[in-house]
Design a protein around this nucleic acid. Structure first.
Length: 208
DNA sequence: TGCCAGGCCCTCTTTAGGGCCTT
């Protein structure tokens, strides 16, 4: 497990709440090490239930596509190995965290790494952005787009590029050297009004 | 049986309400 390596992940699901029966239907993830994507994981998964026409339209994933996909439990066991002990990143991480933990519970496995949220960070680092949807931030920061929005691997890759952009912007604009995962997690929880002071203090403590 | 998300963040706030994000 490298110093600055994280797994950035994204789920497509049957709905918004795993506690009310929603399941994962696709996972996409990228492993980032030293500011580069060095590995990828992607799979559709058969949730054992029909998905709504809203989800078919929203994701482009159809019931027919899922009928030939491997079962969720099988894919999640593979993904458990892929994420290993890495820390995790997602856009609106609370959503993906709930689904990840719910699906891991079903196969009696646990997550080791902690989550950081690129949406909470973007709200603090880019308060002037039109909004903080992933799609908007990718356009606003002129990041590389690969594939179609609302498919898991494409969204995971774009979230990965956004994560790298946030790290670079913090280093360049705020004179920060130490942008460890723990630092990012702490920053994502600082009250928005106190972010400038938090970054100023961090830069001072790092010897500038 | 049927309920049907949850957490952050702002403000006309804290004995609350509503928009933003994710599918």
């Amino acid at each position: 497990m490298g110093n600055c390596s994280v797994v950035v992940l994204d789920f497509e699901t049957t709905g918004l709440s795993p506690h009310y029966g929603d399941r994962a239907i696709e996972i996409g993830a990228v492993l980032i090490s030293d500011n580069e994507i060095v590995d990828r994981f992607q799979s559709l998964m058969n949730p054992g239930m029909r998905i709504s026409s809203f989800i078919e339209d929203y994701t482009g994933i159809t019931n027919k596509m899922l009928s030939t996909a491997p079962p969720v439990d099988e894919v999640m066991a593979d993904f458990h190995s892929f994420m290993d002990q890495h820390h995790l990143v997602a856009h609106n991480a609370g959503f993906d965290c709930r689904f990840l933990d719910a699906e891991l519970d079903r196969i009696r496995r646990k997550r080791v790494g902690e989550f950081a949220c690129s949406m909470l960070l973007s709200r603090r680092i880019y308060p002037e952005a039109p909004n903080h949807k992933l799609e908007t931030l990718v356009r606003y920061k002129k990041l590389k787009t690969t594939g179609v929005h609302h498919r898991a691997l494409a969204d995971a890759e774009m979230t990965g590029h956004l994560w790298i952009e946030i790290l670079n912007n913090l280093k360049e604009s705020f004179d920060l050297r130490d942008v460890s995962f723990d630092f990012m997690r702490r920053l994502s929880k600082v009250p928005k009004a106190k972010v400038p002071l938090f970054l100023k203090k961090a830069a001072e403590e790092q010897g500038y």
